[in-house]
Design a binder for these strands. Structure first.
Lengths: 206, 206
DNA sequence: GTCTATAACGCGATAGAC
DNA sequence: GTCTATCGCGTTATAGAC
């Protein structure tokens, strides 16, 4: 295949993945029609089937891409050791993705809420060891009396839930913000609030 | 209509609403077929249409019932004044509903995530004044120096997100709990963790 | 690689007998 | 009030021309 054609392919695939992320976020897997996605990316329906033979395959490609993105957010657990630094970096990374990839967050939430019918056992394989490592680190901080005696899983869940809320429930957030999306300043304030409540909540001075 | 028939109607309507809540939670609005709901409640499809003429009407009935349930959880904002008492009561009420009505929580989350296409402007009408009253109370606590200077909306969002997480993302929670639903004891621990992190996070000794 | 036409199917909704 | 049969639409996926 010529370089030119490879270029076309990559550009189309990327465009389709991003458009599909938006449409799946807005309508859910069952509610999203391939025609909707085709309209979003301005390509004919059958062109989508050329790159992704079924809707399920396209949806799975979107999900797998997101899994990679989420994992990046938690690299700070490996690079740092100080609980204040690790957690504030993690919260900021997740909040930033809630702002830059809100559709992705919604697709992910939708999939988990419905019991991960597509991810299936792959979720288990991706999630378990990854999350247990984070829990172990938090548990170690507790053992070393660097933070208060808290349930590690609860801390993780509160961070996931609180940060993703700004993406997944943005409709509600906007209503309560006088029907406006949060400004950059308001968003920065939200990052600060979530961070300081979590840090202080586990016994750290923010 | 005779009392007997009224009884049949009420019993059937309740059964359908509860079964529909489960199926909508598991498959989403578009993914849920009337046949699925009919199978769940063991009634013929057309019987459902007798009570709820369209799928949309049934779905709306489920949503409106949930709105009432959620509002009940926040009554403590009116009955108490002490921030510690109000917030711990609210968190407990919401956690309890996450445990007893997980399907309801998921239906609600699904609807908001997709931009409240069915609730539409009714969400606005139900949510705005209701939430602004809670924010005002938190803001007053800050003004009276009973809690730290926090963003009232962030506190609400963290409570909503953290408590609902145990229902909406139970699939993930269960995976990380060795593929078991949380036991009563584990759940009680989770309530305690969320409560103490939030309270301490805004400057209260739990 | 792109696009049109169509096959095959699932689903919501209703008509009408009981 | 209950149930069976059916209509008609929307959707996925593919076959095949260009």
């Amino acid at each position: 295949m010529s370089n030119h054609k490879i270029e076309i392919r990559r550009s189309n695939v990327d465009k389709i993945l991003l458009g599909a992320e938006k449409v799946f976020a807005e309508k859910g897997f069952a509610g999203a029609a391939m025609a909707d996605i085709a309209a979003e990316v301005e390509l004919p329906r059958s062109n989508l089937h050329y790159y992704f033979s079924t809707k399920t395959e396209l949806y799975n490609a979107v999900l797998l891409g997101l899994l990679e993105v989420w994992k990046q957010d938690a690299l700070c657990f490996e690079t740092y050791d100080d609980p204040r630094l690790v957690l504030s970096s993690y919260i900021r990374a997740k909040m930033t993705h809630s702002r830059t990839r809100p559709y992705g967050s919604k697709v992910w939430a939708d999939e988990i809420i419905h019991g991960a019918p597509m991810l299936g056992l792959r979720l288990d394989a991706s999630l378990y060891d990854w999350a247990k490592m984070k829990e172990a680190k938090i548990r170690q901080w507790v053992a070393d009396k660097r933070i208060l005696a808290v349930e590690p899983s609860s801390v993780l869940y509160m961070i996931w839930a609180s940060t993703q809320h700004y993406a997944d429930f943005d409709h509600q957030v906007n209503i309560l913000n006088e029907h406006q999306p949060l400004s950059d300043i308001q968003f920065e304030r939200a990052v600060h609030s979530v961070t300081s409540i979590i840090l202080r909540g586990i016994g750290l001075e923010p």
